[in-house]
Structure formats: C-alpha cells, structure tokens
C-alpha cells in the first residue's frame, strides 16, 4: 500500500503524524472498498481493530500475507478443536487468501509512516 500512496495522501499522513493505514484507504467516497477488508474486519472482534490486539490475544497485523495464509490454511486443515481452527473452516481458500492479503498489506509497518511514505 505504501507504494500506492499519492503525494496528497503522503502529505496528509505526515501532517497528522501517526495516522494509521486505514485512514488513507477510503478517502475517495466513490471507491470500491479494498478486497478482503470486510472479511478481515471479522477477525478484529478477537484480535483488535486493524489486527492490533489490546490484550494477551495475538496481534495479526505484524505478519506477511504469505505467513498469515499458511497459518490459516493449517488451522483450516487441523482436526484439533480450537476457536481459530473452527473459524478457519468457515472460509474458502480464496477467502482466506483475501484476508491474509488485506492484513499483510495494511498491517505490520504502521508504526513509522513518516519514514516510509516518501517512496
């Protein structure tokens, strides 16, 4: 996402200091919501808004899309009965990829926009 940032958005982020990634994402009201975002928001009840946990539950904003997808597919295949293993089974592989791509794209590097938005 950083590479897609327009100069205007980059300026906006700099001006605000520590704006999170989502703030720049839907400033165009006529734009289609990013693929995977709606599905990914369903992770946030347990893992925190934008995947940033406020509790002992794991954050999910700090991994690459490929790592996330690999974990989700392992959970989907697992026979062990856990909350996440069960959740993962409700999604197609394509849906899990959309979620992983969205979280991997928006997360992880959010703490230091100012250093990264100028590319």
């Amino acid at each position: 996402m950083k590479h897609l940032a327009t100069p205007l958005i980059a300026f906006t982020l700099l001006a605000a200091g520590s704006a999170p990634a989502w703030a720049a994402e839907h400033t165009d009201p006529s734009a289609e919501p990013p693929a995977g975002r709606l599905l990914a928001t369903q992770c946030f009840q347990c893992h925190g808004t934008n995947g940033q946990s406020q509790s002992e539950i794991d954050s999910i904003d700090d991994e690459s899309a490929e790592d996330l997808l690999e974990e989700l597919l392992e959970m989907k295949a697992s026979r062990k009965v856990t909350v996440m293993n069960q959740q993962a089974k409700a999604y197609s592989d394509a849906e899990l990829r959309l979620i992983a791509d969205y979280l991997g794209r928006t997360g992880g590097n959010d703490d230091d926009h100012d250093d990264r938005d100028d590319d």
């Binding site: 009840q45 893992h47 509790s55 002992e56 009965v81």
Partner: peptide
C-alpha cells in the same frame, strides 16, 4: 456454516483467551 464448542473447560480460556477476547471486543 461452522460451529464448535470446547471439548472441556480449561484454565487457559479462563485466564487468557476469555479475558483477552472481552478486552478486544470492547475495544473494537
């Protein structure tokens, strides 16, 4: 399309997953 119930109550869920879920649900 997918549902489950814990095989049995556990200490981890009482001390970590449950309280952690509530904190994040309230925060979200």
């Amino acid at each position: 399309s997918s549902s489950a119930e814990a095989p049995e109550p556990t200490k981890d869920v009482r001390e970590e997953e449950g309280p952690g879920w509530l904190i994040n649900l309230l925060s979200d």
